[in-house]
Design a binder for these strands. Sequence first.
DNA 1: TATATTTGATATGTAGTACATAAGTGCATT
DNA 2: AATGCACTTATGTACTACATATCAAATATA
Lengths: 230, 230
Amino acid sequence: MLPLDASNNLEPILSKTMADIVEARLRENFRKRNYKPGDALPTEMEMAQSLGVSRNVVREALSRLRMLGIVETKKKRGMVMAKPDILGSFEKLLDPFMIDEATLRDIFELRLVLEMGLPDLLFPRLTDEHVAELEKIAADELTADNFRIQNEIAFHGKLYEITGNQTLKRFQSMLLPIFAYVVALEEKPIRGKISHSGLVDLLRTGNKEAFRQGMLEHLRPHFDRLQHQL
Amino acid sequence: MLPLDASNNLEPILSKTMADIVEARLRENFRKRNYKPGDALPTEMEMAQSLGVSRNVVREALSRLRMLGIVETKKKRGMVMAKPDILGSFEKLLDPFMIDEATLRDIFELRLVLEMGLPDLLFPRLTDEHVAELEKIAADELTADNFRIQNEIAFHGKLYEITGNQTLKRFQSMLLPIFAYVVALEEKPIRGKISHSGLVDLLRTGNKEAFRQGMLEHLRPHFDRLQHQL
DNA sequence: TATATTTGATATGTAGTACATAAGTGCATT
DNA sequence: AATGCACTTATGTACTACATATCAAATATA
């Protein structure tokens, strides 16, 4: 009655638990049958019986899928597929506290790359209102140092927001703690030669590449740090 | 004996299960005590008793953390903290099959942004050997259409690889299926004016911005599609 | 007939017991 | 000291029991 399917190409012994196997089988099934959000699923007992395991094991597997938002359960109604909030789940993992330094640095670089590629999404969707909003934020740039980070976040966050790409915006928000963490690890905070106001001016010219170069200057201190690590 | 901590700012009623609560409490504890990989954890029974819940509930919560690679368990040795493989877990979520179209499109754009920001990581770390490897891949560009996608993947994948940023590289690999999926959704496959060979030539000049503009041309068909959706 | 109420059935959520299995620990024997 | 044995312990799995929420059908009511 072992559900260990014969397709089990003998990989490194790694002892999978039943819950692991059931989880995989369920995912596999969902995909094969092309379940869509809202579709009803069998009951826990039915799954347990058809897989030949205890309800306990099935519940452990379902608990995982539930956490990821892949399925939802109501008391009597049974289970239904749900549309998982990918980024929400991803957020649970992006805790600087449990990421090794090498990966933190990688993510730091990833953010820089995003920032440099952003203009190509930004400019096609930029309006005068957007520029006005950015200008307002940039005007607060020179207040007390306590709020400097806040202001950084507000300004760059706004840039992502303007792209209209919700996923990108949320992704950036999630990277913020990591960015802050890595920056805090390093020594003195240096400002780039180009300020937020300078960036707004470049935006207003409508010259995408000029803006990109401005952004590069704005981020220069961070890029310079990277060089030292090579 | 309700473990519902008072810090529970009253959010929408959302009925959390005990497993949800225990999971949150455990994470909270791990962070508070600054557990590091390898540190030993209490036994399931101890957790259950100290939290006032059944071992079943604790196991469901631990099962989730285990899936994410946050903890590891051995038969008698008890549990220890582990270093989670963020991207590995993220991969489980990035299945085009269960992501809604809006998000798919967002991710598609995200990839384009990455590609356009890449030069700033690429050039500082580029060597002659890298260029040679890219050239070799580009040479295969014009073979049968069956392999065109393969070749695309190989070339762009190589670019990410050259950055030396493992996380970025893996992230890009994970986005590939989504990219392919979205492209397949759209109509005719059009090639940009600039081929891979053209990009290699630009690389060789050492002119970062020229290369970036080349990349923009290479990706032009994709960017154009975006415009239509605005 | 249509609406409201009650009742019953059902699936999930939680608790608890039991036992198999793996893996340390320490004792005993050589 | 090294090997082998029994003992202990924590996880993995199975099973039972019951609370709770909710759907559905039957009943009562206007």
